[in-house]
Design a protein around this nucleic acid. Structure first.
Length: 720
DNA sequence: GCAAGGTC
């Protein structure tokens, strides 16, 4: 009898093996994949890892059309580029399954973990998933793991597996079909092969960003006045502000200034307050990403990448966590002693060790699978880390050490000045006791405004009282850090995927700007198209609905088949309507797409999104598109006579192409076209005749622009 | 190739 335990990832496989082994497990490997052999109670056990999802959904037939609902599970390395490393893991599981006659899933206890286990059993091991048992644990300590081993669930949780599978399929149906619909619309009008995309998470995220753009665009600044008192004490100048910080009536502001100027000004009261400031909680991934953004301006994606590298070197714990709590049984003392070997942490570490009790602060959020991010106590060799790795490591170490330090004490002072019965406030604040700020202070900003001592009744030497005109400001644009916080707050995406999804929005050309995110005209048009055709996909409610359905599947109140069928029906209807309006939608997308292209040329950015195709691919796509729509409506411009769209059409008898107005037969405007070369709309109207549009003709070895009007001077000049 | 979700 041999039992094969399947873990979600290599690191967990190792932990399970060490926990269950009597003595030490034997580490072996197949290719690059490590696995462990051990015995417990005379039973042979093999522990082997997956690496997250090993299987992914893909269409059964390779088509470019939509709708598409016929999909199945395939190895991820088949479905996605850059996932070849998973091949070895599937191979290893397949190999080890042959040696086993009992199977235990030990993936994270959530819907995704259940899907990872289910698909690994079914497609890698070739085993009926209903034959497998389930090891259920929520912490990776020896105690928890041993308890889980002796209390195996008799089967995997099929409710969770079904809910997870439904989630995968629903996301695929909505995301892929609508992405294809968007791309297809633009292709129809532009003739260009551009990837547009949307999905359950991309959609609402882009929508938030667009909403913010609209708020900014529609913002009407309102003027207001602030009143300031410049005063002098001991040869230094200080500025006090009027008790009402914004005055929207200029006359009122004038009056206050005039009255206050009469004086006399004296100190009416001095309020001093001391407050304890506790250290910040240990890092979950989202907080680390925000902090690294504010400290170093690293994008969330970059921070996760660096943290992953540190984790792989065993310098820090697992980064994809939402916990803000350190593990209870962690040997804090040992870690801090190790960190003391690094010169810059030495004094802090020694101070903490001298305290006797080591009790960290913790945050509210928890994660069943992983604790907060902490330094393991492994010490990097000098020069081992890059500057970026060093920065992030320092941030994590200091945050960890700070959690054990004393609170800081801050003092705030309010001097209330009365001048002819108008009140002005002079504020100061300073740190009285540094506490944890000594360790982590370089990453937090606190004002340090030290005031001289003022006493009640004291006369104030006023130098000036004045009003300043200001304007209300529009809300700020999102930064990569703040949009990810927004996603977190609304519960869309996961800790592991949010950063990646944001990168996707950048690579689609929907958004730009490293620090403040600006939505491009294309991004705005995509949201507009979805708002009027598929409002569901840009709404957070779709996620809520999926979650609810999943819960009902887990509770066996609904079957996954029913949920999938329902979504399919809804989508068929939506996609049918979308297809009917493709030309219209595409025309709108195109307007701004031309601008985006021009702009990106200006800033010398290469659009990764528009790729050159091989002739083979091009032929296939053409056939596909033509099959889909016998008359590809490439819009080349506006009709000078009626304002309709000028589109490329084909003579039914001769098959020859020409440009005609879309309002035919009401409008009879036509232009002849050269029969050779690819027609590319430019969005420009001819500057020479001011009438007909200019199109680009792209032949195999040359391309040139012509005015559609054959009699226009522009074309004559060209020829001569 | 398009999603979102795991992970190296």
């Amino acid at each position: 009898m041999t039992t094969l335990i399947i873990a979600e990832k290599p690191n967990v496989a190792r932990k399970i093996a060490y926990a269950l082994a009597e003595g030490k497990p034997i580490r072996k490997s197949i290719g690059k994949v490590p696995y462990y052999e051990l015995t417990r109670d005379g039973k042979k056990i093999i522990v082997a890892p997956a690496v997250g999802h090993l299987f992914s959904l893909a269409p059964k037939e390779k088509t470019y059309g939509y709708p598409v609902f016929d999909i199945h599970w395939v190895p991820v390395y088949v479905a996605e580029k850059g996932k070849s490393y998973t091949k070895d893991y599937i191979k290893a599981l397949k190999e080890l399954a042959k040696r086993a006659d009992e199977f235990v899933v030990a993936c994270d206890y959530d819907t995704e973990g259940e899907v990872i286990g289910y698909t690994a059993l079914k497609y890698a091991c070739g085993v009926d998933p209903s034959k497998a048992k389930r090891m259920r644990f929520s912490a990776l300590t020896k105690k928890d793991l041993i308890r889980a081993w002796y209390n195996l669930e008799p089967t995997i949780n099929f409710g969770m597996a079904d809910a997870g599978i439904a989630r995968h399929i629903l996301d695929w149906y909505w995301g892929v079909n609508l992405s294809r619909a968007l791309s297809s619309s633009l292709r129809k009008t532009s003739g260009k092969w551009v990837i547009l995309s949307t999905g359950r998470v991309q959609g609402p995220t882009l929508k938030f960003l667009v909403d913010r753009e609209r708020e900014i665009r529609d913002f009407v600044p309102i003027p207001y006045w602030v009143i300031k008192m410049i005063l002098e004490k001991n040869g230094e100048q200080y500025t006090a502000t009027y008790e009402k910080d914004r005055i929207f009536d200029e006359e009122e502001a004038k009056r206050i200034v005039e009255e206050a100027k009469k004086g006399p000004a004296f100190v009416e009261n001095v309020e001093v307050e001391q407050r304890q400031r506790y250290p910040p909680h240990p890092f979950d991934l989202g907080t680390l990403q925000r902090e690294a953004y504010s400290a170093f301006k690293y994008s969330p994606k970059k921070t996760l990448d660096i943290a992953q590298r540190l984790y792989e070197r065993a310098l820090v714990s697992y980064p994809r966590t939402s916990s803000q709590k350190l593990p209870k049984n962690l040997n804090y003392k040992n870690i801090i002693q190790n960190l003391a070997k690094i010169q810059e942490y030495k004094p802090h570490a020694h101070e903490l060790l001298g305290k006797g009790i080591l009790k960290p602060v913790e945050g509210k959020k928890d994660d069943p699978a992983h604790p907060a991010i902490y330094p393991t106590g492994e010490i990097p060799k000098p020069g081992e880390l890059t500057k970026e790795e060093q920065n992030l490591y320092d941030l994590i170490v200091r945050r960890f050490l700070a959690a054990f330090a004393d609170p800081a004490i801050r003092e705030s002072v309010k001097v209330i000045i009365n001048s002819n019965n108008h009140h002005f406030i002079l504020s100061g604040s300073r740190t009285i006791k540094e506490g944890w700020l000594k360790i982590y202070g370089k990453y937090v900003k606190f004002d340090e405004i030290v005031l001289p001592k003022f006493v009640k009744g004291e006369t104030i030497n006023v130098l000036q009282i004045k009003r300043e005109k200001k304007k209300t400001k529009p809300p700020a644009r999102y930064s990569p850090a703040s949009i990810i916080k927004k996603m977190e707050d609304l519960g869309i995406g996961t800790k592991a995927t949010r950063a990646q999804i944001l990168e996707t929005l950048y690579s689609r050309g929907y958004i730009e700007g490293k620090r403040t995110i600006k939505v491009t005209p294309l991004g705005i048009k995509v949201v507009e198209a979805l708002e009027s055709n598929v409002p569901d996909i840009i709404s957070v409610e779709l996620t809520r609905e999926f979650e609810q359905k999943m819960e009902e599947i887990i509770q066996r109140k609904l079957t996954k088949e029913k949920v999938i069928e329902d979504s399919k029906k809804t989508l068929i209807k939506i996609l049918k309507e979308f297809k009917n309006k493709e030309s219209e939608i595409g025309a709108k997308l195109l307007e701004t797409f031309l601008d985006t292209q021009k702009n990106s040329k200006k800033s010398k950015q290469k659009s990764k999104n528009t790729k050159e195709l091989t002739t083979e691919e091009e032929t296939r796509i053409k056939q596909e598109v033509e099959k889909d729509n016998k008359n590809p409506n490439i819009i080349v411009g506006k009709c000078p006579k009626c304002g309709g769209n000028l589109v490329v059409r084909y003579n039914r008898k001769t098959g020859k192409r020409f440009v005609g107005c879309s309002n035919w037969p009401e409008c009879n405007v036509t232009y002849p076209l050269l029969q050779r070369g690819k027609i590319i709309p430019t969005g420009k109207t001819c500057p020479e005749c001011g009438n007909a549009p200019i199109v680009k003709i792209k032949e195999r070895y040359r391309e040139y622009e012509v005015c559609l009007d054959m009699n226009c001077n522009k074309n004559r000049k060209k020829k001569s």
